[in-house]
Computed example of a mutant assay.
Amino acid sequence: MRNPTGTTCGPERQLLQYMLDHMRTELIDTVRGLSESEARRRLVPSMTTPIGLVKHAAFAERNWFQRVLAGLPDSECDGAMVGEDSFVVSDDETVADVIAEFERAGDRARAIAADIDLDATRQHPVFGTVSLRWIYLLMIQEFGRHAGHGDILREQTHATRRT
């Protein structure tokens, strides 16, 4: 991994924040440069599309940082809070819109987490007691996995351009 900032050593929080931001960027990069139709193309049996992965990631940011960490009610979160539909992108949303939604969710996540100790805990209805540290690790894992999915979909998209 190229690391121009030299963030390979340092305080744990700095490393977690750097890696989460890096994974956010990697996920966004999987849709940059795709046409609107390419970003929506279903190349696997599931509802997974490149743009849908970024839409889902925005939901995950809101769920974990706004709902769980900040304790906000769904009405005060920045977007839809229905997990089952988190991969669904409406016809009037563009790639740029969905990227902007994800970036706003990331900005708000950073602001929410800024003054919270890594060991601070919250309750989650499925996972039980979770710490901010665990949320960071979960999001890094989630966005890394989805960036990998996006890379494969992008590769498949580029292959269909050549045929």
Score class of each variant (00 low, 15 high):
residue 62 R to I: 00
residue 98 V to Q: 08
residue 105 A to V: 00
residue 13 R to I: 05
residue 68 V to W: 03
residue 33 G to T: 07
residue 161 R to Y: 06
residue 63 N to R: 15
residue 18 Y to A: 15
residue 58 A to P: 11
residue 117 D to C: 05
residue 112 I to V: 15
residue 42 R to F: 01
residue 111 A to R: 12
residue 71 G to N: 04
residue 92 D to P: 00
residue 145 R to K: 15
residue 11 P to T: 03
residue 154 R to G: 05
residue 69 L to F: 04
residue 64 W to F: 15
residue 61 E to K: 01
residue 17 Q to I: 08
residue 87 F to T: 01
residue 45 P to F: 01
residue 17 Q to C: 12
residue 21 D to K: 14
residue 87 F to L: 11
residue 34 L to W: 08
residue 74 D to C: 01
residue 39 A to P: 12
residue 117 D to I: 03
residue 136 Y to G: 11
residue 141 Q to C: 11
residue 119 D to E: 15
residue 128 G to P: 10
residue 117 D to L: 06
residue 139 M to D: 01
residue 139 M to H: 11
residue 140 I to Y: 09
residue 102 F to I: 00
residue 131 S to W: 06
residue 41 R to W: 11
residue 66 Q to T: 03
residue 72 L to N: 01
residue 41 R to T: 15
residue 69 L to R: 05
residue 26 E to I: 07
residue 137 L to F: 10
residue 126 V to H: 03
residue 38 E to V: 05
residue 53 L to R: 06
residue 143 F to W: 10
residue 121 T to H: 05
residue 148 G to Q: 05
residue 137 L to R: 15
residue 26 E to S: 15
residue 51 I to P: 09
residue 23 M to R: 13
residue 143 F to C: 02
residue 26 E to G: 13
residue 116 I to K: 09
residue 128 G to Q: 12
residue 39 A to M: 10
residue 147 A to R: 13
residue 57 A to C: 11
residue 116 I to R: 08
residue 159 A to Q: 14
residue 45 P to M: 00
residue 134 W to G: 08
residue 152 I to A: 13
residue 102 F to H: 05
residue 93 E to H: 12
residue 108 R to C: 02
residue 126 V to F: 09
residue 78 D to A: 02
residue 142 E to C: 03
residue 116 I to L: 13
residue 81 M to K: 02
residue 11 P to L: 07
residue 151 D to N: 12
residue 72 L to M: 04
residue 85 D to R: 15
residue 11 P to F: 03
residue 52 G to N: 05
residue 7 T to M: 12
residue 21 D to Q: 14
residue 58 A to L: 04
residue 11 P to C: 05
residue 119 D to W: 05
residue 143 F to A: 03
residue 83 G to T: 00
residue 141 Q to I: 04
residue 105 A to T: 01
residue 61 E to V: 00
residue 116 I to P: 06
residue 108 R to Q: 08
residue 148 G to T: 06
residue 159 A to G: 11
residue 63 N to F: 15
residue 118 L to P: 08
residue 19 M to Y: 14
residue 161 R to G: 10
residue 12 E to F: 01
residue 85 D to C: 07
residue 130 V to Y: 01
residue 125 P to A: 02
residue 92 D to I: 00
residue 16 L to F: 04
residue 78 D to W: 00
residue 118 L to K: 08
residue 37 S to F: 05
residue 89 V to G: 00
residue 123 Q to E: 07
